[in-house]
Every structure is written in structure tokens, then in C-alpha cells.
Amino acid sequence: MSSDFVQNITDAIGAHGAWKLRLRTAIATGSSDARPSEVRCDDRCALGKWLHSPTMDVQVRSGMPYKVVRRLHAEFHSTAADVLTHALEGRKADANALLEGDFTARSEKLVRALAKWKGEALAASRH
């Protein structure tokens, strides 16, 4: 695995971690610079563009880590969009419950899967 591969995963972990703050801000203010329909798309952020890239290695795409990360990433975006929808519609309690519940659980699963994938890539590059 290349250093770009590992860097993409590192960057993704940081970028997706920042979403909780963005969603908290949307809940508190009732506004956001993002629209739920855009957030729901899992192929527009840097990680999504990379995961969906036609240049992604076929062997990587066929591997379980890729499949797991891609599924968890889609679930993350779907749940973030749901939180944002509640926030923008003024349903703060619903938004907070979803943020602290499903969103946090999905975010943590995604980060764990990314970290595991990164560890496997680093181990493979040493051999």
C-alpha cells in the first residue's frame, strides 16, 4: 500500500471527526451551510471521492476492509443528514438524540474500521 493510501485514511478520520461539531452547531443555531440532501451523498467528501474513484485498485475494492468502510461511510452520511434535517427543522431534541445515539455509534464504527484498515495497510507495506 502506498503512503497516499495511508494518508487518505488518516485525513478521513480527521474530517469525519469534525462532523460532530458541525452538527452540534447546526442544532444550536438551526442553520447550516450544508443541505441534508448534499450531506446524504457519500461520494462528495474527500473519503467518498476516493472510495468511489474509478482508479481505486480492483484488489482493494474486492477486499473486506474496503467493503466495510464503504458501507459504514454511507451509513455515516445518511445519519448525519438525518441529524441535520432535524436541526434545520427546529427539532433539537430529536437531533440531539440522534447525534448522541446512532450518529455517534456509526461515527465510532467508521473511525475504528478506518483505523484498522490503516493498520493493515501499514503492516502490509512493511513486508
Results as ranks from 00 to 15, higher is better:
His77Asn: 12
Ile27Trp: 06
Ala46Val: 12
His52Cys: 15
Ala74Asn: 12
His86Met: 11
Asp57Leu: 11
Ser53Leu: 10
Ala97Gln: 08
Met64Val: 14
Leu51Thr: 13
Lys20Phe: 04
Ser78Trp: 03
Leu72Gln: 14
Arg61Lys: 15
Arg61Asp: 06
Asp94Gln: 15
Leu51Pro: 14
Lys49Glu: 15
Leu88Val: 06
Gly30Tyr: 07
Ser53Cys: 09
Lys109Ser: 14
Asp102His: 08
Asp82Ser: 13
His77Tyr: 09
Gly90Gln: 10
Pro54Ala: 15
His73Val: 07
Leu72Val: 06
Asp42Asn: 13
Val69Arg: 05
Glu100Gly: 05
Leu21Gly: 06
Lys20Met: 01
Arg24Phe: 04
Leu88Ile: 09
Gly63Glu: 10
Thr25Tyr: 01
Gly48Gln: 03
Phe76Trp: 08
Phe103Lys: 02
Ile27Ala: 01
Leu51Gln: 12
Ala74Lys: 14
Trp50Ser: 06
Arg22His: 02
Asp94Leu: 14
Gly48Val: 01
Tyr66Ile: 04
Ala26Asn: 01
Asp42Gln: 03
Ala26Arg: 04
Val39Pro: 03
Arg70Phe: 09
Val39Asn: 01
His52Glu: 15
Ser78Val: 10
Asp42Arg: 02
Ala105Trp: 04
Pro65Ser: 07
Gly90Cys: 09
Glu89Thr: 10
Leu21Pro: 01
Ala28Trp: 00
Lys20Thr: 11
Arg91Asp: 12
Arg24Gly: 03
Gly90Lys: 09
Phe76Tyr: 14
Met56Phe: 13
Val60Pro: 01
Ala46Gln: 15
Val69His: 05
His77Ile: 04
Val111Ala: 14
Thr85Asn: 12
His52Met: 10
Arg70Cys: 12
Ile27Lys: 01
Arg91Trp: 04
Ala28His: 03
Leu98His: 00
Arg40Asp: 12
Val83Ser: 03
Leu110Asp: 03
Ala74Ser: 15
Cys41Asn: 15
Arg24Gln: 09
Arg35Leu: 14
Ala81Leu: 02
Ala95Phe: 08
Lys67Asp: 08
Thr55Met: 13
Arg61Met: 12
Ala97Ser: 08
Leu51Arg: 07
Glu108His: 11
